[in-house]
Design a protein around this nucleic acid. Sequence first.
DNA 1: ACTATAGTTAGCCACATGGCTAACAATGCA
DNA 2: TGCATTGTTAGCCATGTGGCTAACTATAGT
Lengths: 109, 109
Amino acid sequence: MALDSIFQALADPTRRAVLQRLGRGPATVGELAEPFQMALPSFMKHVGILERTGLIRSRKSGRIRTCTLEHKNLAAAERWFADQRAIWASRYQNLDSLLETLTGEEHDR
Amino acid sequence: MALDSIFQALADPTRRAVLQRLGRGPATVGELAEPFQMALPSFMKHVGILERTGLIRSRKSGRIRTCTLEHKNLAAAERWFADQRAIWASRYQNLDSLLETLTGEEHDR
DNA sequence: ACTATAGTTAGCCACATGGCTAACAATGCA
DNA sequence: TGCATTGTTAGCCATGTGGCTAACTATAGT
């Protein structure tokens, strides 16, 4: 499933930092790599993963590759949480009613 | 970081399915494992990962281990998306203003 | 033309992941 | 007591991940 690779991509601090940086606007590979100690080829693997997963896009102009955030696929992952929480919340709602019925107690959130 | 292991845990369909199931209420390991072809020891690894990551909790009573969802740590990951989107949205807002200024055009969403 | 810059390709390495089987508890039931 | 159920432990295996160096390509600047 696509979610597999999306979450996999997000499970690395370097890649999350790159996404965060790209949230503020496009950047070249060099700019993106600069904050990290890593050798360039290592860093490029991360870029490659993010691109294969569809979380970023990149275009090379001259010898410079510029990356941009692909917000749509990030939203797909976020939707999983919304769905998940909807399921949980509906049950919690029921439990809540039950608890209120049985004990009259209030709960947090 | 905690997000590393949380996203790592979510990057597997079996584990996401388990979380989804637990969203509807507690279940024993046997009940959780039943939908999957996997051998029990393999499945237990997934349970172990979910528990180490703090996404579920489990208690053994007699020979039966019952698992429950730990919604709080799931929320931590969800928050990352919210933060991320906030950054992006603020810039998008700026770009939006810019675009409207320059072209008077409308955009989607 | 030369040199510096910005990536890229290839290949290596250690360790983590996700699956398996086989054998072993430990509890509950007849 | 004996047997079935429900996990658990140990150990194996193939593949994936995240890092590295060395060497190469391609563009830009002088």
